[in-house]
Amino acid sequence: MIYITSEPLNPQEITDLVCKDSNGAVITFLGTTRDFSEGRDVLYLEYEAYQPMAENMLHQIADEVRERWGIEDIAIAHRVGKLEIGEISLVVAMGSPHRKEAFEASQYAMDRIKSIVPIWKKEVFKGGEAWIGGQEEGATTPAP
């Protein structure tokens, strides 16, 4: 199951989706919001998605994992909207008969999520805010 939501993510529920008697290895990755970034004290974060496309891209990544590692049991959930520090922004769960494939495929899926899925993160910190990944000059906007 793959979805994007503004509701808090429940890692156990998402992990349960990939737990099967035929899977000897289950890996659940949690992305959590951090309070310190590039020397700035982050107050909270805002995630924005191009939702239908982001879901399509997550499905594409799941298909790639299925083709490369034969892993069928994949669940990915990404949260959007305002997140406080320490909340879970992303859950990627994989179930596989053996651990090696599950670790490799999880790493691969994470790298792909970071590069092709249209979801953006804005850090709001003391003294301003900045879209992360937006490295163009002037991407940082001072607080009003």
Binding site: G31, T32, T33, R34, Y50, P52, M53, A54, N56, H78, S89, L90, V92, M110, I113, K114, S115, I116, V117, P118, I119, W120, K121, W131, I132, G133, G134, Q135
Partner: peptide
């Protein structure tokens, strides 16, 4: 992206297409 898929920027557009310019992405966390 055109109609939710990444495209070749040289491929002609069509009536009714939805074009999105995708800022550098940062899905998830490191």
């Amino acid at each position: 992206a055109v109609n939710s898929e990444y495209v070749n920027p040289e491929a002609p557009l069509h009536e009714g297409d939805e074009v999105a310019f995708i800022p550098p992405v940062s899905g998830g966390e490191t």
